[in-house]
Amino acid sequence: MIKFDIQNLKLYYGDYQALKGIDLAIEEREITAFIGPSGCGKSTLLKSLNRMNDLVEGCRVVGKVLLDGEDIYGALDVTELRRRVGMVFQKPNPFPMSVYDNIAFGPRTHGITQKHKLDEIVETTLKNAAIWDELKDRLKKSAIALSGGQQQRLCIARALAVQPEVLLMDEPTSALDPISTGKIEELILDLKRRYSIVIVTHNMQQATRISDKTAFFLLGEVVEFDETENLFSAPRDKRTEDYITGRFG
């Protein structure tokens, strides 16, 4: 099943064209990795999948992004879109409030107010994100006091709390130490059973370790998109080969 069908997507920041006609199909319950040199449009494409680019002044989108066959730039409500398509950012960004309130923020946004329901959501999402044991005694403590790795896993849990279908992750481990990175990769692999995941990474090893498919970007275009194994072992395009062997970028 195709989750996201991106058809000839062009994106402009004012006069600057950041995406030059992207065609890409993102499969359900798979991990798709975006790789490519800095400034090639990976984050831009990721943000356009839950319309975070709406917040950028002067940003214009042409083309189609279909989520389960429905155009997200058409009639689909943005609030509902962002509930279905969650986002985890490069730098962990827990809100300056308690662990509990961080997790409950999303469900409350979407109208859940009963205490017992929220309690249940907080517990199950923290368990799903594999930090329940670490945080169950600190639910009322400020999330800002957690370690960077814990903060990032909290942010993943926060995104999971609204029961999304897709998780977008923009270099989620680039600000973390190797041990935290390992824990998050493990978590991502586990989440794959229930969610479709798109992850931007600068780390080739990470892409090979966790992703099923990989897209290589260059200057606003997808140069090559294939099974991760194929792309890294037998790249079809010369530019892909140059990039993954470290000859540029």
Binding site: L55, T79, R82, R83, G86, N93, F105, R158
Partner: peptide, 18 residues
């Protein structure tokens, strides 16, 4: 107030008012 707080909130589907 860091923009990352705003992004986090919008990313969860919250509107501007919230």
């Amino acid at each position: 107030v860091p923009d990352s707080y705003r992004e986090g909130s919008f990313g969860l589907g919250a509107g501007r008012l919230r």
